[in-house]
Design a protein around this nucleic acid. Structure first.
Lengths: 355, 355
DNA sequence: CCTATTGCCGAAACCGGTTTCGGAAATCAG
DNA sequence: CTGATTTCCGAAACCGGTTTCGGCAATAGG
């Protein structure tokens, strides 16, 4: 793989082709070229075509900084990571970033990433990125029920797109995975295997996926004609430890569940531990089915049956939606959902009555 | 946490204070202010001070895009993620990004992130980021022995800083963790516990950390007066599966090791599995000591003794070094190392002779 | 005291775009 | 054929900075 250093170097480099070059090549002025490139109606169709074609062949691409100083927009998406919940987003981050990057660069946009370790810091980060024109809008990962970011950006009328959904949808574009469908299907899957006492371990309740998944679980139970026992429902389990803790509670119940649905893979892995401690084998004596699709699930014993989220695609869609949002497209067209993919790895099995 | 929407909005917003505002406030021209801000010697010390102070009180900060159009530099660091080895960098990514972001924003720089899925794509990504002035230089995570990125950027004379070290150091700034010291200390630690047959499981040989860690291991063995048995040395183990595989090989050796040093935590977790399969308990019958400090190590049974890398700090240092590099500082001052932190969690113990 | 430096700053061009404004040519109405 | 509109583009200002150039005043040198 050899690449000649010419055309590449930062300094000598064949000078970028500018709008003046294009204008000169066409015998037009740069103002005409500019308006043609931006599709102004006071430039004739023929000229627009000529300009665009010439730009294409000369490989002209307006310098975003030069545009930015007048327009204030720089063709870049902002992402502010919150370290407070880094544990939760760590496993998905690389794929997610890759998707965002792909979605952005497909439209010749870029991705500016910053991190913040407190809420105050986060706000300052948003502000300075905006102030300095480093981001034209933001992707908000892991949105919460009463998300300060949403409130802030909405009030300030700054474009953003959420990874998640909100009932109060004014001014919001979003992409989300239908976690509720996954939870419902998980219940139906277990019910079809004969399970009747099914537990549910939800994730962190402050995020807006949690109520949805809870509803999905209950919906599934209802569809299967099963009754929900509140004693078999736990919340806020997002780590292996959490899962182990609440798993122990559920399994020590006088009438323990024969199957457990988890809103989060990590919690399921914790339940594996709780089950192992009690000598319960999966899936023979306990079925577990979860959600996320973390790689660790593949190597668990038994491998974890789960609803996997395509985080790369999520990033890609979010980037695309945000760009369209910034371009001023109508909000109602900027709401998408996708389904999680069921991956049956064998951690569920037919229900057996425990002695 | 309430933040008034004023001063914040993207559109109305109190107009940014520009260089003209500062000039006017001081009764100077903007050219003088510009040169004062940039420390030109043809501006008197008194004036420089006046300007700087006024800029401070007016909260003036030059708009990087406006500067960029003339200077070509935009105060932003580039990071190109390679998806091919995402598995390896995933666990560290969030912390690493946080460090980069912190280091960058401390100097009022930003971080532009892109992803590439092939080598060709990677090169194009570098090129377009440079061409569009989206990055003034690059951070290269996980450098390899014969790294195409290094070759490319060096030839093109684009500033970069490596996370790693190279023997061929011309034109390279770097930050690296002294993995070799960790490996040596690991051996000495084990030797002090009475171990004599010590195995070594190295990581991916194409990265330049691998030869270093190998050397560190051998150095430790020599210092401890122990002989290295080639049969107890394995390479290219970076995942749990890899570790399980090579761990099996080592443990099935007629004269198996009583302790194993791993260059990578994940491999150590694989060795846990191999040991479990053979009924070997850790640390009673086998000592394991590794390197990285992944969170999973905390939850292993027993918790994994390891040399932990502070990836947040690494990111911070790399950002700082790269900024100084871009500012033209001499390369020889831009090479730093740090030590990994020994965390004894109990996966090593005194050597016992196996039956 | 007069000239040659030097120190210090203003004026103006420039960077690569966008946008306002005005006017020439072409079309339309009468 | 003339006057009023349109259509379409050029001229020039502008955005927020940087950089070149030149000149004035103060200093140094003779």
């Amino acid at each position: 793989m050899h690449i000649s250093a010419t055309r590449f170097s930062a300094k000598d480099a064949h000078r970028r082709v500018t709008i003046n070059d294009v204008a000169e090549a066409l015998g037009l002025t740069k103002s005409t070229v500019s308006r043609a490139m931006n599709g102004y109606s006071d430039i004739s169709q023929t000229t627009q075509l000529r300009v665009r074609r010439m730009a294409e062949t000369m490989n002209y691409m307006p310098l975003s900084h030069a545009q930015a100083i007048k327009t204030g927009r720089t063709r870049s998406l902002g992402l502010v990571l919150q370290l407070s919940d880094h544990d939760a987003q760590r496993p998905f981050l690389a794929e997610f970033l890759a998707g965002l990057s792909a979605g952005a660069s497909a439209e010749n946009w870029t991705l500016t990433v910053a991190a913040s370790d407190s809420d105050d810091d986060m706000i300052r980060t948003f502000q300075s990125l905006l102030r300095d024109g480093k981001a034209d809008g933001f992707v908000l990962p892991r949105t919460m029920n009463d998300d300060p970011r949403v409130k802030l950006l909405r009030e300030a009328d700054v474009p953003f797109v959420m990874f998640g959904r909100q009932d109060d949808a004014d001014g919001c574009a979003w992409f989300d995975i239908l976690g509720e469908d996954a939870m419902r299907d998980a219940v139906l899957h277990l019910a079809s295997l004969g399970h009747e006492r099914i537990g549910f371990v939800n994730g962190a309740m402050q995020y807006n996926y949690a109520p949805l998944r809870d509803a999905g679980f209950r919906d599934g139970m209802a569809q299967a004609g099963l009754t929900v026992d509140q004693a078999l429902i736990a919340e806020d389990a997002v780590t292996i430890e959490d899962g182990k803790r609440v798993g122990s509670l559920l399994l020590d119940h006088p009438e323990p569940p024969t199957a457990i649905v988890c809103a989060v893979d990590f919690a399921a892995l914790g339940i594996y531990h709780a089950a192992a401690e009690r000598g319960l084998s999966i899936p023979q004596e306990l079925s577990v089915i979860a959600y996320d699709g973390i790689p660790e699930g593949v190597h668990a014993h038994p491998p974890l049956t789960t609803y996997a989220v395509d985080n790369r695609n999520a990033g890609m869609r979010l980037a695309t939606l945000l760009i369209r949002r910034i371009r001023g497209e109508d909000l109602v067209n900027l709401r998408e959902t996708a389904k999680a993919n069921f991956i049956d790895r064998g951690s569920t099995g037919p229900a057996v009555t425990r002695p």
